[in-house]
Nucleic acid binder design. Structure first.
Length: 928
RNA sequence: GGGCCCAUAGCUCAGUUGGCUAGAGCGCACGACUGAUAAUCGUGAGGUCGGAAGUUCGAAUCUUCUUGGGCCCA
């Protein structure tokens, strides 16, 4: 051996961190590789197999609609679910996750018609439905790939899809059960209707265009003023732009809080809203200043009756919040069969729903003398008749925006048609009772759903559409009685289970009915109901079609987790069907998340150009960054995202990744089987690191348990930066690098680092699911193929509050000293900490703290430190800090070539003239 | 118009039953290191707690109103 080693060669006598784990994540490229590994492993099945027999935790997936690519809301939802499922499995639960899709309904019909230019009326139903089916399944596949790209673990091979035969079969059973319980009835409800196309239209199929309509003011003679309104020679004036709806008039709505004047005009008394009197009379061409006879509040006039202007019928005065004073008379002509608001207010007063217009738009016999006329054409005659009978105050015309059919461009109208309803009223109390039993997070969810259920009207299940699950009802051809019973449902659900609901459209009723079915009237020929079910009935049945049907799942679910729009949607529909058929909520707990807005808290929209596309985020940053973002925010309220926010998350990711890299680098020669140091032999600083981690571990687990992932995020980030990087790694690194590889001092540090590495990787696995698995392949001694196949370990070192408190004090003193060193650094007295020498003049309390530190030089990272006795005269050039005076000078002596400590002792060992004595000893361990 | 919700430093979050000069991390500025290096360390500057009024000895925390924003209805 030579007497002097080259400077460079001393490098090789150090335990520098070394690892293949890359500093940069390169996530967009690496994640798909990791996912390929999971696929090859069939990780879902493997996890499920491993957790079999453990207590179950069922998170039931709310099915996204299979139309379009996923957006940030989908991403957030699925990531949250994945975090929970993975947390639960790693906590010792059997938490199967079966993803689902919602596939029926208007938007898909719409897309087929629009994209393929299909005319629904020209293509056979079965063919049209097949196109919808194919379209939906295409998007299921597409979204599936996108969800998998997010790193979500689930039974992707066997998802539930609402168009699956077994699903449809269960769904009509649910409907059958509800019918059996008396919760299904047939009623009337107005829908948009196009007379030219002879079809009902959905909201989305209606477009608005300008139209000129008659504008008439009509007098309704008062019959019974209920002792409030003088009936003599008195009329209530209504205004309408649809005279043809007058035959369906059954009421006049007033605003309960508005003032109404009874005014004397041309020898008769007219009731008009006070604010509108002059406008109405001006329109009517009345010049004279009207005499106000009396003023009423709308609410006083409730239940007054009037005479219909041309039919032998009464019209009831009712109160409604839909009445405005923007136009008209403040007295609103109300025809529940021809308007949505009229219908709703009509329900409150139990008004008859009249719609004397047939499918071709012609008046029926119910309309009296107008029978047979096309509804719009009848306007003219109705106005003429009103004129003649003196009931018309005035006629004008009005240009306004009016709904038109998207296809034929003709104007449309509201027409009450027969529909199937679910009678919420019959089990509303039970619904409200069940809501109380659910655990709501956030807590206001309970109020929100409660109010909704308390206020909602009966559930209109009928849709006049083709792409949906048919309403499984037959009608007797002889007497029109509807037939739904155990045997029909049983037969149909068997047929559906085998062939799917398509069979309903392929076969005649005679081929679908159970053998020997006869009507009570004796009839034995039947026809099929043509309506399909509201898609909310589809997804609302998932608890029966999925939870109750699959052996690995359970009814009810432990948790439903969806966006806050689902209070009205899936939370609501699922509760309704479940209470109707089982008398119980299908979920034990509801967790809802908010919406994702842009950086300014505004709704994301294409037109604003502020949409954050999760697919782009994954391409640019990677899924783990997106997942970390989800974890970083308090998702219960609305959250914000933009590129700046993602960049910040990416920074936190890098810090975390580097922490892992540093840990791995220091453990490259560590074997947990042989090198683990027992707890009681650990150096105090290493014991402290484990102690700190234990505290973090407990808080993190608490955060997961409370579904507060942002707590997890902050807790881990703070731990990595403050406790580890800024302090522990920094002060222990000289020891870790310079000491003999197998020395206790090093194995002690490695033991702490190893324990932290393993547990931290696991704790992060539910969130940074790819990165954690990547790290896992580098963890010494880790034999599992994936960190997802492990469960969280228990306490490594019980938390020692005393120890923590002691070191908190040491760290505060360190902060003060660091400030002093920073001043010296600015003054160029020192550079890095090892070039400094310290003289400390503590007060008595600080002296105690300093004395308690096991290795002050290490903790402060300097080459020399002298602690003076309390009361020693403070050097003139020392500066006062909190609890002590500090004097910083450049350390005297030479810099040791190897450990970089500055000391006069360098060169005392002749063999190593550039080393300090400690290094001269240690270096022996590296020379072979 | 109705039901429910949100609003603390540039960003993401803490702030226990109202009580010391409102905290953390990131970002930013300045500096150090060059043996965690497309890394790492240090120091520092940032908030009249959306606004107004009130209750109180005292309010980010309670009440009322108000502004902006979100979801669901109408």
């Amino acid at each position: 051996m030579t007497t002097t080693m080259e400077k460079l060669e001393y490098n090789k006598t150090l335990n520098l961190p070394e690892t293949e784990f890359p500093m940069r994540g390169n996530l967009p490229q690496r994640e798909p590789e990791i996912q390929a590994k999971w696929d090859a492993l069939n990780i879902y099945a493997k996890v499920q197999e491993q957790q079999a027999g453990k207590p179950k935790f069922i998170l039931h997936d709310g099915p996204p609609y299979a139309n379009g690519d996923i957006h940030i809301g989908h991403a957030m939802n699925k990531v949250l679910k994945d975090i929970i499922v993975k947390y639960k499995t790693m906590s010792g639960f059997d938490a199967p996750y079966v993803p689902g899709w919602d596939t029926h309904g208007m938007p898909i019909e719409h897309a087929i018609i629009k994209n393929k230019g299909i005319n629904r009326h020209e293509v056979p139903v079965t063919e049209f439905r097949q196109m919808c089916y194919d379209y939906a399944l295409d998007f299921v596949e597409r979204q599936k790939g996108q969800f998998q790209r997010l790193g979500v673990r689930g039974d992707w091979q066997n998802p539930y899809i609402t168009l699956q035969p077994e699903y449809e079969a269960r769904q009509i059973q649910v409907f059958g059960e509800m019918a059996k319980n008396g919760y299904i009835y047939k009623g009337l409800k107005p829908v948009y209707y196009c007379a030219a196309c002879e079809t009902a239209l959905a909201e989305a199929e209606v477009e608005y265009a300008d139209k000129t309509s008659p504008s008439i003011y009509v007098k309704f003679e008062v019959l019974d003023g209920k002792g409030v309104l003088p009936a003599e020679n008195t009329s209530i004036v209504i205004w309408t732009t649809t005279p043809w709806t007058l035959p369906a008039n059954v009421a006049i709505s007033l605003g309960p809080d508005f003032e109404y004047d009874l005014v004397a005009v041309n020898g008769e008394n007219l009731l008009i809203a006070q604010h509108l009197v002059s406008a109405v009379l001006k329109t009517a061409g009345v010049d004279a200043q009207p005499k106000v006879l009396k003023t009423f509040k709308g609410s006083e006039l409730e239940l007054v009756t009037c005479k219909h202007p041309f039919l032998d019928r009464e019209s009831l005065v009712i109160l409604g919040d839909h009445v405005t004073l923007e136009s008209g008379t403040g007295c609103v002509h109300t025809a529940p069969g021809h308007g949505m608001e009229d219908y709703l207010v009509g329900l409150k007063y139990d008004l008859p729903i009249l719609a004397p217009v047939d499918g071709q738009g012609k008046f029926t016999a119910e309309a009296g003398k107008y029978a047979g006329q096309f509804y719009i054409k009848a306007n003219k005659q109705i106005i003429a008749d009103l004129q003649e009978s003196g009931r018309l105050l005035v006629e004008k015309s009005l240009d306004h925006s009016y709904p038109h059919c998207w296809r034929c461009k003709n104007s449309v109208f509201f027409r009450a048609t027969e529909q199937w309803f679910g009678s919420i009223d019959k089990f509303r109390d039970k619904l409200l009772e069940e809501i109380k039993k659910v655990e709501w997070s956030p807590v206001w969810g309970e109020v929100r759903l409660h109010n909704m259920v308390a206020d909602r009207t009966d559930w209109c299940i009928s849709r006049q559409r083709k792409w949906g699950v048919p309403i499984p009802i037959f009608y007797c051809n002889d007497c029109n009685t509807e037939i739904i019973n155990d045997s029909t449902i049983d037969k149909l659900s068997k047929l559906f289970a085998e062939h799917g609901s398509q069979i309903w459209f392929e076969k005649e009723a005679s081929e679908l009915i159970p053998h020997g079915l006869t009507c009570s009237c004796g009839g034995d020929t039947f026809r099929k109901e043509s309506d399909t079910m509201d898609v909310w009935f589809d997804s609302g049945s998932s608890h029966m079609a999925v939870l109750d049907a699959r052996p690995e799942l359970q009814w009810p679910a432990d948790l439903y987790l969806e966006g806050s729009d689902q209070y009205r949607g899936w939370f609501n529909s699922s509760l309704s069907t479940a209470v109707a058929v089982r008398g119980q909520a299908p979920y034990k707990a509801i967790l809802s998340h908010g919406f994702t807005l842009d950086g300014e808290g505004r709704k994301q929209s294409k037109s604003l150009g502020n949409v954050v596309d999760p697919l782009n985020v994954m391409k640019q940053y990677g899924a783990d960054i997106l997942r970390l973002w989800v974890a970083s925010v308090d998702f219960r309220s609305d959250t914000r995202v933009n590129d700046a926010i993602l960049k910040q998350v990416a920074d936190v990711y890098r810090k975390t990744r580097n922490t892992f890299r540093y840990l791995l680098g220091n453990l490259n020669d560590f074997n947990p089987q042989t090198d683990l140091v027992p707890l009681d032999q650990l150096l105090e600083l290493d014991r402290w690191a484990l102690n700190k981690f234990e505290q973090v571990r407990e808080r993190v687990l608490k955060g997961y348990e409370a579904n507060e992932f942002h707590v997890v995020y902050h807790e881990i980030n703070n731990f990595c930066t403050v406790a580890m990087s800024n302090f522990y790694f920094d002060v222990s690194k000289d020891r870790m690098y310079t000491v003999a590889p197998k020395a206790l001092e090093r194995r002690s540090g490695q033991t702490a680092m190893y324990q932290i590495l393993v547990a931290l990787t696991q704790l992060l696995a539910p969130i940074l699911t790819h990165t954690a698995d990547e790290v896992w392949t580098y963890v010494p001694g880790a034999s599992e193929e994936s960190v997802q196949l492990t469960e969280f370990g228990g306490v490594v070192a019980p938390f020692d509050a005393e120890l923590d408190k002691k070191w908190d004090a040491i760290l505060s003193v360190r902060d003060e000293v660091l400030k002093a060193m920073e001043v010296a650094r600015q003054e160029k007295t020192i550079g890095k900490s090892l070039t400094a020498s310290l003289e400390l003049y503590p007060d008595s309390k600080t002296a105690e703290i300093l004395a308690s530190a096991p290795n002050l030089k290490e903790v402060l990272g300097v080459s020399y430190v002298a602690v003076q006795e309390v009361g020693t005269a403070v050097a003139a050039d020392a500066t006062q800090y909190n609890g002590l005076f500090v004097k910083v000078t450049a350390a005297g002596g030479e810099t040791c070539e190897r450990c970089r400590v500055v000391t006069p002792d360098v060169g005392t060992q002749a063999e190593h003239p550039t080393l300090c004595p400690v290094c001269a000893d240690n270096v022996v361990h590296f020379i072979k």
